[in-house]
């Protein structure tokens, strides 16, 4: 029989392992444990249908959040008008989808790129405040949409047009929007990691002054990040309109996206993070939402818990950054 006794070497390695664990990792494990425990005590939560539901509800949220992540990575926080843009562009999509789904999608993506590109120009070129610009842009979009629709808040899918319904179908039990989410993540990550502009988004977000000194055109990169955000949000708008077949009211995409980004661990100050992290953040938001629905909690309670989670994540990340520095 061999008796294993702790040696000085093994205790040193344990101590160094403990030292290497960051506050963020501890918090992540704690949050995961709480989510798993609450999932376990919720009837029928750990089932295939529940997980299909979580995936299916996360697709559009994730695409909006991925869009906003481009802004966050470039050091421009987030937008407060994502929900309005999704609604307005969703209405526009339903109005023009009779031209065919692909031309309609292309037009909506172009509109999204223009709406956000202009905001990016104001923020990048003039140094305007991103939050204030996004609120102004939201009201402008709302006003223009109300004018074009004759203040009709209920835009319905055109009768008899079925050419776009593949966008709301399930494939292998999973909604098209989820497959689209994976596609957007892959394309977005390739853009961020394999192109010069993508890598410059990280650099500008990490240290704007250094990026400027290195000769990077910060204004151009800011506009590119906003355009990427606009394209993603516009794509999410087409998926949302195709799925619900109407465009009645704004969803909670603005704040769901912010929560997903921060829970995913992307630094709100820019330069650190990834689209994959945001996708996982969106999955956590959907997990939480599904669990709370199954436990009988209402929407305000979900919003409250999301707020608490966001509060905690921001504080932990700040403490972690301070610890490192």
């Amino acid at each position: 029989m061999t008796v294993i006794t702790p040696t000085a070497e093994s205790s040193t390695s344990i101590a160094s392992f403990v030292r290497k664990i960051s506050l963020v990792q501890i918090a992540a494990v704690a949050v995961a444990a709480v989510l798993i425990i609450f999932g376990a005590i919720t009837n029928n939560f750990f089932s295939l249908s529940t997980f299909q539901g979580i995936l299916n509800t996360s697709g559009i949220i994730a695409i909006v959040a991925i869009g906003v992540t481009f802004m966050t990575l470039s050091g421009n926080l987030f937008t407060l008008s994502a929900s309005v843009t999704v609604l307005v562009l969703g209405q526009a999509f339903l109005e023009i989808v009779h031209f065919g789904p692909f031309p309609a999608i292309l037009i909506i993506l172009l509109l999204g790129a223009i709406i956000f590109g202009l905001q990016g120009w104001l923020v990048g070129r003039l140094g305007a405040n991103v939050i204030i610009i996004s609120v102004a842009a939201g009201f402008l979009q709302q006003g223009v949409a109300e004018y074009l629709s004759g203040s009709n808040p209920s835009i319905l899918a055109p009768a008899g047009v079925t050419s776009y319904l593949w966008m709301r179908n399930t494939y292998g039990g999973i909604l098209f929007s989820v497959w689209a989410m994976f596609g957007v993540v892959i394309l977005g990550e390739l853009f961020l990691r394999r192109t010069v502009a993508g890598r410059q988004i990280y650099l500008v977000g990490e240290n704007r002054a250094a990026a400027r000194t290195a000769g990077i055109n910060v204004k151009r990169i800011t506009i590119i990040a906003f355009v990427a955000a606009g394209i993603c949000i516009a794509f999410a708008a087409t998926l949302e309109a195709a799925y619900t077949q109407n465009a009645y009211s704004q969803g909670s995409y603005t704040f769901d996206a912010i929560v997903a980004i921060l829970i995913g661990g992307t630094s709100v100050l820019g330069g650190k993070g990834s689209l994959i992290r945001t996708m996982f953040g969106a999955l956590v938001v959907s997990y939480l939402s599904q669990m709370m629905v199954m436990r009988g909690y209402n929407t305000p309670t979900r919003v409250f818990v999301e707020g608490l989670l966001l509060f905690g994540v921001v504080v932990v990340m700040q403490l972690n950054d301070r610890g490192r520095s």
């Binding site: 709100v268 209402n298 409250f304 818990v305 999301e306 707020g307 966001l310």
Partner: peptide, 24 residues
């Protein structure tokens, strides 16, 4: 913690909004 107030107060906004719904 010398935090970015814009980010933290988004959390604060959601918490108060949630409380509002719960009280209602």
């Amino acid at each position: 913690f010398r935090m970015n107030s814009m980010t933290l107060t988004v959390g604060g906004y959601l918490i108060t909004l949630g409380l509002c719904g719960a009280i209602n």
